[in-house]
Every structure is written in structure tokens, then in C-alpha cells.
Design a protein around this nucleic acid. Structure first.
Lengths: 113, 113
DNA sequence: AAGATATGTTCATTTAAATAAACATAAAAG
DNA sequence: CTTTTATGTTTATTTAAATGAACATATCTT
């Protein structure tokens, strides 16, 4: 992605860490399944070069390429709980701390999207 | 990413699902923390437009932008176990079973013990 | 040894990701 | 009501992500 964001050019150590770990884990899962990079890449719908980037933990690669690879390996379910509001204790506390005071007037309840 | 991969142009439903969920979860976490998109985007090191894309679950956005956002929200730890080899039961079994699979095709006889 | 297979590396080409500015709209805050 | 803040939308510009081909290297198989 052109005009590369700072976060992609030089990610915080924690992000780089997660990316390297993810790449390593994907490679391990692929080898266990005895798939070549070409074979897996084809199943995912990317080129072998992008899969190589993923296994190296490249920050600028599209998230769909990463998730698609997890999906092709049967490991996508690992992502279901990421940032789950129910597990976001910090956020829950902050939300509750917001004093609703008297009566919360609401005309229409939801406002998603 | 130019020459957009098939996986990014039209991801499998499971991938699209995870992306939408992730975007919604990030939005929820941001609002709970009372951060504006501009404020959070600046902390992450991306433009507000990219953060908007993330909250919409855009497939072609760089993974570092997603992970950086989780990081800025204190939610990156959720990613640590993704594709963890220790939790990859399928992979562990395959490795132990040592299945031949799509390796080099044998010409005539094959009778590994 | 040869032959096949897997991955790495370089190069050129395509094209859309990311940015910024400007303006619109919609809520909050005053 | 008026002002401010948050987010959405449009447009133009920049530039590197993704691709494929070709070649290199390494490993594995006869």
C-alpha cells in the first residue's frame, strides 16, 4: 500500500512480534500438513510470493491474505475471539464507569454499522 | 494492493465474517474508550480514513494497520495464540501420522514400511 | 551421477492502498 | 439556536503491493 503508514514502515515491537510469531506458526502448520508453498498459495488464492511474505511476517500485506491462509489451514477459528467485547475487561469497566446518572433516554436502541 | 488477489477481491464467507466481526469489535472498543477515529488513528499512526476502512472490515488493508489498532487499544494480546502450534491438534496428528500426501509422486511401488 | 521438487531472488509491469484537502452531514455541547 | 466535534464522501496524487517470468540454490529421489 503506497504512502506506507508509519505503522507499516516501522511497527511497534509488539506488533512486529505478533507478525513474526504468526508467520512462523503458519509455516509450521503448512509443513505439518505437508503442503508446498505453491500448493497452499493456490488453495488460498494468492501467489507463492505473497505466502512467502506472510511466513516472514510482512506488515504491509493485506489482512485478507493472512486470514485466507489461516482459513485454508483450518485455523481461522483462532480469530473469532480477537477483540471480543465480552472479553474486553478494560473497555467494560470504562463503559460502566460512565455514569448514566438518571434516566437514559433512548428513542431507537441500536446504532450499529 | 495492486493486482488484488482473489482472496482480497472476494474472500470466502468465513474470512469476510471474521473481518466484519473484527471491525465491529474494534469500533466497540474505541467507543468504550471514548476515542474519536481521528484520535485513535493518530495514536496508531494511520489516517482516519484507514481506521474507517478497518472498522468496516476492508480486506485489502495492511495487516499492520489492523494489528496496530489492536495494539493502541490494548487488545493485541488476543493475537498471541492464533495458529499456535501447540493448539493445532490437526497439525499435530498429521505430523505424528507422517502421511505421504502430495509429495513427489511415486512411479511404481511405494511401501513405506 | 542425473532428475525432480521446493524455495529464494531479481526484474518489470500493473493498479489500487493510503494520503490530504475540501466539503457535507449529523450529532453533541454551548 | 449556534457552535463545535465526529464522521462520511469526493477527488487527486503518490508509490509500493502483488503478480509472473526467469534464474539460482538447495534438498530430496532415484
Amino acid at each position: 500500500m503506497p504512502r506506507v503508514s508509519k505503522i507499516s514502515k516501522s511497527p511497534p515491537a509488539a506488533v512486529e512480534d505478533i507478525l513474526n510469531r504468526l508467520g512462523r506458526n503458519i509455516r509450521t502448520a503448512r509443513l505439518r500438513r505437508k503442503l508446498s508453498m505453491e500448493e497452499l498459495a493456490e488453495r488460498v488464492g494468492i501467489s507463492r510470493y505473497v505466502l512467502a511474505d506472510i511466513e516472514k511476517g510482512k506488515p504491509t500485506t493485506a489482512i485478507a491474505a493472512y486470514l485466507g491462509t489461516l482459513w485454508a489451514l483450518g485455523l481461522l477459528w483462532n480469530m473469532r475471539e480477537v477483540a471480543d467485547p465480552d472479553r474486553d475487561q478494560e473497555g467494560k469497566i470504562l463503559e460502566r464507569a460512565r455514569s448514566p446518572k438518571t434516566a437514559p433516554k433512548r428513542k431507537t436502541i441500536n446504532d450499529d454499522f
